[in-house]
Design a protein around this nucleic acid. Structure first.
Length: 290
DNA sequence: CAAGTGCCTTTATC
DNA sequence: AGATAAAGGCACT
């Protein structure tokens, strides 16, 4: 199946999958292979043309955020030269609509880890607790279901490289599996409400809740603040805060709870309803500066 | 190459 | 309330 992207629908598949919002895609021979739910599909982009196999158009449009009005979003978040440069340089980066369950576990695992390590953990988890699926002669694994992780034991999870995160993953899996936590329902709630629900789960703090809200629930105003975003604010946006506050957050690598709220709220107020897009463009921009 | 630092933080404990 | 420490282990320099 093919989809021709129009001028009003800029999209860059490579940047979207490489910017660190998702961890289980593989590029093999020019095609990106991904697993969602039970099935494997592949997709590639050649110029304005998006070609995909084993998946329908509606899924692709939704998953890759192609229904977002990106030209409008980019003009709204280009509030200053830094955001504008990032928006121009990485135009086509889109916020995905990941599966909330996979996204939740991914970001619980992601705390205090670097991206290659996160990818490895999630691969180990999927290999051990997911289902093997063959596609075009290659082997893939589905992401473990809440049920399969809920009945895992802590040691098995630790063997996947989760360390102290094993307990959080296990307890969260139990909550979701026992049906006293309805992840899909969070999509219907406001950002604030969805986030406060997520915060009830073990291993989910402000940062993880914001990432899940942004990358899987479509809450585009969520503004996750990690060490990179904190650095960016100190570097480029310090004038928006009292100098005492900037001095304070510069001292530590990651912000405390009240500092996090202040930084995140700044992002939402300053960039507006698409603050999450601004966050991801700035994050990627700063990381590419190395 | 070994050792040190950093990592898309959260939680428990003062 | 607010600061501080502890918690895997891997990847990069």
């Amino acid at each position: 199946m093919k989809l021709l992207l129009s001028h009003s629908c800029p999209f860059n598949l490579d940047i979207t999958l490489c910017c660190g919002q998702v961890f289980r895609w593989n590029k093999i021979g020019g095609w990106w292979f991904g697993v969602t739910g039970e099935k494997v599909f592949k997709i590639r982009q050649i110029g304005e043309e998006l070609e995909f196999v084993n998946v329908d158009e509606d899924f692709v449009k939704n998953y890759f955020g192609l229904n977002d009005d990106l030209p409008k979003i980019l003009s709204q978040i280009s509030k200053d030269k830094h955001a504008k440069t990032a928006a121009e340089k990485f135009k086509g980066l889109r916020i995905l609509r990941q599966d909330p369950w996979e996204c939740l576990i991914s970001y619980i695992c992601a705390t205090y880890k670097n991206i290659p390590a996160i990818e490895k953990m999630l691969f180990n988890l999927s290999r051990k607790f997911g289902e093997k699926v063959a596609f075009e002669g290659l082997e893939f694994y589905t992401f473990p279901t809440p049920a399969s992780l809920a009945k895992a034991n802590k040691r098995e999870l630790q063997e996947c490289g989760l360390g102290y995160r094993a307990e959080y993953v296990l307890e969260t899996a139990k909550r979701v599996h026992n049906d006293d936590f309805h992840l899909e329902n969070l999509k219907k709630l406001s950002y604030e409400k969805a986030r406060s629900e997520l915060l009830k789960l073990p291993g989910v703090g402000l940062k993880v809740a914001d990432c899940v809200s942004l990358f899987s629930l479509g809450k585009l105003e969520a503004f996750p603040v990690d060490v990179w975003i904190k650095r960016i604010i100190v570097k480029y946006y310090a004038s928006h805060f009292e100098s005492e506050f900037v001095k304070k957050i510069s001292l530590h690598k990651s912000p405390g709870k009240s500092e996090y709220e202040k930084l995140s709220l700044f992002g939402r107020r300053y960039f507006g309803e698409y603050a999450g897009y601004a966050q991801e463009y700035l994050y990627h921009y700063e990381r590419m500066q190395r």
